[in-house]
Amino acid sequence: MSDTTTPRGDWPLYEVFVRGKRGLNHVHVGSLHAADDRMALTHARDLYTRRNEGVSIWVVRSDLITASTREERDPFFDPSADKVYRHPTFYDIPDDVPHI
């Protein structure tokens, strides 16, 4: 490191998302450092799909992701907590009514 002129940590962090096979969503698999988007893609291929684990890869700079706040149970998610009528089980239908 003594002889590097590049400031350390210069390669930004990327998050990697892989589509395992056709018909599935891309899923977050981890992160890596790369100098640019192209390198991030090739590194992601070498690191996360060495055994045909993917048919498509997305990479995105970690600092470009906007995320919800710390705790998963925080008030940010409250609006959906009290709306049981959004679920089919909320509705009483007699047993002898078919196909519903």
Partner: peptide, 24 residues
Amino acid sequence: MTTTESGAPPAPGGTGPADLQERF
């Protein structure tokens, strides 16, 4: 992921050190 944070502020009363420890 290390990302920027947004969204609602933490709930009042639920984020004291004891609450956090308990939740953990």
